[in-house]
């Protein structure tokens, strides 16, 4: 098996941290067969994304390299790898867990800060404009029901969900 890049800092117990996170539970079942790579539509297009490699890095504890890199954001969430994994590693879910960890540490791609703000402020990830509301009436569609923002915010507060502020590029 190839080694991690020289100079990569390894965080002890990172694989335990991932396994303890929702979505990361099956990480340690991976035996590096590569079925995920051969099933991955993104890996066919770019060498910047390799699910087997990413799982290996998580197992070895390359936390910094994973959460500061672009790789975890390139999964298209198609779940092909997860369907086909002979070890039943929930690969796409492991990547969600890695994204959750990266965001908590402040690595926030701008599109995610927009999603979090929209959910928090409007209860929807796509905003419904006045124009759309009016158009619905013209088209004969029923007016939209309220989203129940007060209750939603109580839930977001209970899970510790916050508006993500985009990190300034250095």
């Amino acid at each position: 098996m190839e080694q991690v890049n020289s100079g990569t800092t390894l965080t002890q117990d990172f694989s335990i941290k991932v396994s303890d996170h929702m979505g990361g539970e099956t990480l340690k079942h991976c035996y590096q067969c590569g079925t995920c790579v051969s099933s991955c539509p993104v890996a066919k297009l770019t060498s910047s994304f390799n699910p087997r490699e990413l799982i290996k890095l998580a197992l070895m504890g390359a936390e910094e390299e994973i959460i500061s890199g672009e790789s975890i954001w390139l999964c298209c969430s198609c779940y092909n790898c997860q369907e086909r994994c002979p070890q039943k590693v929930e690969i796409a879910d492991v990547f969600y867990a890695l994204r959750n960890i990266a965001l908590k540490k402040g690595y926030i791609p701008s599109v995610y800060s927009k999603f979090s703000t929209a959910l928090f402020d409007e209860g929807r990830v796509v905003t419904i404009s006045r124009f759309v509301e009016n158009k619905r009436v013209t088209l004969g569609l029923p007016s939209l029901k309220e989203v129940g923002l007060d209750n939603l915010r109580k839930i977001l507060q209970a899970t510790g969900f916050v508006r993500l502020e985009e990190k300034e590029e250095e």
Partner: peptide, 25 residues
């Protein structure tokens, strides 16, 4: 039937932010 108080479903983009939130919502 259109019911009130249904919010965003919390799909993959929100799962990426926080899986527990997504599941709860």
């Amino acid at each position: 039937v259109d019911l009130a108080n249904m919010s965003c479903c919390c799909p993959p983009p929100i799962q990426s932010i926080d899986m527990v939130t997504s599941l709860a919502v």
